[in-house]
């Protein structure tokens, strides 16, 4: 049994498409359970989440903004956008990457990073932090906590360097994103 791979009669989707990374902004009513609905959609349909942030952004109107970084083939990315739009408490979904391109949207993330060490290692950590324009927000004789803001890739790079000079732990906020220019969504 199971000697050869099953050839499913249902197999419709071609797997040849390249996967892409997309950032989406989702404006939702800040009502109980809304985050669970969004996350449930991703889990139930097998979509990927690289990063997810959520916070109320307009108190009067009770609106929250969810920023999701996801990846998948272009067809899957389209599906994700449409599936999100179909959720009842969702006002608007913008695929920032698709609508405005890599350069059309600003993406920032904040991370705080704890390193511990002595002597040279400690100096090296400080020098690297300076080079990345990270600021020191806590210090003891054996440790620092740095705060860095920037694009995800920069932060990744900073953290990987820190792992050589006594990285202890990291906390990241996830991505916040806006489109460039005068207009809002």
């Amino acid at each position: 049994m199971g000697k050869k791979k099953p050839t499913s009669t249902y197999d419709l989707r071609s797997n040849s498409e390249q996967e892409e990374r997309h950032t989406m902004s989702v404006i939702v009513d800040n009502e109980p359970g809304v985050l669970a609905r969004v996350i449930g959609l991703f889990a139930g349909r097998g979509y990927n989440i690289d990063s997810l942030t959520v916070s109320e952004v307009e108190h009067e109107k009770q609106l929250s903004r969810i920023t999701i970084v996801t990846y998948g083939s272009p067809t899957v990315i389209d599906q994700i956008k449409m599936q999100l739009e179909r959720l009842v408490p969702v006002h608007r979904v913008a695929d920032l990457t698709a609508e405005f391109g890599e350069l059309g949207a600003i993406e920032r993330e904040l991370a705080i990073i704890k390193v511990a060490g002595k002597g040279n290692q400690r100096l090296e950590a400080l020098r690297l932090a300076e080079a990345f324009q990270a600021i020191t927000i806590d210090a003891t004789l054996e440790s620092f906590i740095f705060q860095i803001t920037g694009r995800t890739r920069e932060i990744d790079r900073f953290i990987s360097l820190m792992s050589h000079v006594g990285l202890v732990e990291v906390s990241r906020t996830g991505v916040a994103a806006l489109k460039r220019g005068a207009e809002g969504l």
């Binding site: 099953p6 249902y10 197999d11 419709l12 989707r13 889990a43 139930g44 349909r45 097998g46």
Partner: peptide, 17 residues
């Protein structure tokens, strides 16, 4: 099958959900 999950395939339900 895994590659059909999320496509509303025949007799698909989000069972874990």
């Amino acid at each position: 099958p895994t590659h059909l999950i999320g496509s509303d395939a025949f007799q698909e339900a989000d069972t874990v959900g």
